[in-house]
Design a protein around this nucleic acid. Structure first.
Length: 495
RNA sequence: GCCCCCAUCGUCUAGAGGCCUAGGACACAGCCCUUUCAAGGCUGCGACGGGGAUUCGAAUUCCCCUGGGGGCACCA
């Protein structure tokens, strides 16, 4: 399907950092626009002045660009349907609100927040449906004049029908019908003069000529109210597509926008910048997120960006909520890391290592890249894996250095023998190292596992490391021999 | 409480009446490979929530129940 008239928007409100749930919504909008050749619009719904978070916007823009989901219109890129910040459009919303009042389709309500809270409280106690009781719906002009004279603050409410039904078509879910009695007179304009989501979103979607609304399922219940608004304004409604919720990994409840502890005490990653920081690849994030709520066929899970764009369609978007699996993301990320070229990987690792305060140099990282490539789930795994290569002295605990089967003397002997043999090698390359060391193990009474274990420990200070011979070759003769000798020395001192 | 949405392995899913003794992936278990850890290979475990109805035939259609999720603000 190619339709240049497709215009979709991602419309977050800047109240916090860009998180997984919003990201999936943004992605589907972006993919749908790319797929259809339409436009992807970014609009900032900043009409709640009390919840504005100063870092939200920079975080959002950085994250979207990092992911490569560029917007065709919106902040920092412009467009002919602006402004793209709702706070800059406030006057517009007031005009439409006035227009609705003039037409008798909306009215001013002078009820105080306190009265409304008390009303809700009472309704809750009486087990009644919460909702505005429409007290101000039929004020006389005299009453209105009096309230205005008293300087009472007011909001504008929609005059919703009390009987009949309202229905609409959701692309994924089909026809949805609700009783108008369930709807109440929603606030369109707040007392501070700013619009509510409902008013602003309807007006902007219309004026910006949005063709499809792809948004989270949590908006489904408010669509009937929007239908009323579109009707009151005499506008056609864009196609509605309500995306399934992303659930917490446990499958219990919506994925939180805030920090959440996983099993154990580990804090789960929530914000996109955290995934970036941890070393998830934007390609993998895009691929994985696309699959939370959409599938191409029974088999395929790995998609390039272009394939995603080519294959993505609304027909295969799922209706049921999906739990977010961090394990599967990790797996996919590791697949993407393994597919990276050595230079590419080295460049990405360099940043991660330096951020971890390691004095890493490109050449050495490049040499390690192929050795650790298949051992990384996320880029920051590299820190634990090869930090030893970028520190001069590492203290090795004699306790762990000594192999049980070899004893202190045996371990020390192994280290010095190996150091000597390696020192004497004509050529210090991987093959020569392996041949020599295997020869030494064969001549000794020890098992390969123990023998190499001691060397690994001496060299890296770890039980787990990249392959031994390759690591030695990367470290070089001098460094390797020195590490082995220092370790042997440490055993002397420990005695 | 009321309203809306949803329902296949533990999780993500394929499945649009016979191709299904239900396929793939993650996770998990075992074996192989192996200098550690990974990666890789092989094998295994494992699901159509329940009940009716339609039909020659239902995971696929309809109804009820149950379960899960979401919503009921001068927040978006």
């Amino acid at each position: 399907m190619t339709n240049a008239n497709v215009r979709v928007r991602f419309a977050p409100s800047p109240t916090g950092y860009f998180h997984l749930g919003s990201a999936r919504t943004a992605l589907y909008n972006w993919l749908f626009a790319q797929h259809t050749g339409g436009s992807f619009i970014l609009r900032i719904e900043d009409t709640d002045r009390t919840r504005h978070h100063p870092e939200a916007l920079p975080d959002l823009f950085d994250s979207l660009r990092w992911l490569g989901w560029f917007w065709d219109e919106g902040p920092e890129v412009g467009g002919s349907y602006g402004p793209y910040y709702q706070s800059d459009r406030a006057e517009l919303y007031r005009q439409y609100a006035d227009q609705l009042i003039q037409a008798g389709k909306a009215y001013r309500c002078y009820c105080t927040p306190e009265r409304l809270a008390a009303l809700r409280e009472e309704q809750r106690r009486e087990r009644q449906k919460p909702g505005y009781d429409r007290r101000c719906r039929h004020l006389t002009s005299a009453q209105i004049a009096q309230f205005e004279a008293e300087g009472l603050r007011s909001v504008v409410r929609l005059m919703a029908p009390t009987e009949g039904q309202t229905s609409f078509e959701d692309v994924l879910r089909g026809r949805i019908v609700v009783e108008n009695a369930e709807l109440d007179d929603m606030v369109l304009l707040k007392s501070d003069g700013y619009p509510t989501y409902h008013l602003a979103n309807v007006i902007d979607d219309h004026l910006m000529e949005i063709s499809h609304i792809l948004r989270g399922e949590e908006w489904l219940p408010s669509v009937p109210k929007h239908v009323l608004l579109y009707n009151a304004l005499g506008w056609p409604m864009p196609a509605q597509v309500h995306l399934p919720t992303i659930l917490d990994p446990s499958g219990k409840g919506k994925l939180s926008k805030r920090k959440q502890k996983g099993p154990g005490e580990a804090e789960r990653l929530t914000f996109i910048h955290e995934f970036r920081q941890a070393g998830y690849l934007p390609e993998a994030m895009t691929n994985f997120l696309a699959l939370v709520g959409w599938a191409y066929d029974a088999e395929t899970e790995l998609f390039t960006r272009d394939e995603l764009i080519r294959y993505f369609d609304l027909d295969h978007v799922s209706k049921s909520p999906a739990a977010f699996s961090y394990e599967k993301l990790d797996h996919m990320n590791s697949v993407y890391i393994r597919s990276l070229g050595d230079n590419d990987l080295a460049n990405r690792l360099l940043q991660v290592l330096r951020r971890a305060d390691l004095d890493a140099d490109y050449q050495r990282v490049l040499q390690f890249a192929p050795l650790i490539k298949e051992r990384l789930r996320i880029l920051s795994d590299a820190i634990d894996l090869i930090d030893f290569a970028f520190v001069d002295v590492h203290t090795i605990d004699a306790e762990t250095l000594v192999q049980k089967a070899m004893g202190v003397d045996g371990t020390r002997q192994t280290l010095t023998d190996s150091a000597e043999a390696l020192q004497a090698l004509p050529s210090f390359d991987e093959e020569a190292i392996e041949e020599t060391l295997r020869g030494l193990v064969g001549a000794s009474e020890y098992k390969i596992r123990d023998y190499f274990g001691a060397l690994r420990m001496a060299l890296t200070g770890k039980r787990v490391s990249p392959p031994l011979f390759e690591t030695m070759a990367v470290l070089g003769r001098q460094d390797t021999v020195q590490r082995l000798r220092r370790a042997a020395q440490a055993l002397n001192e420990a005695e």
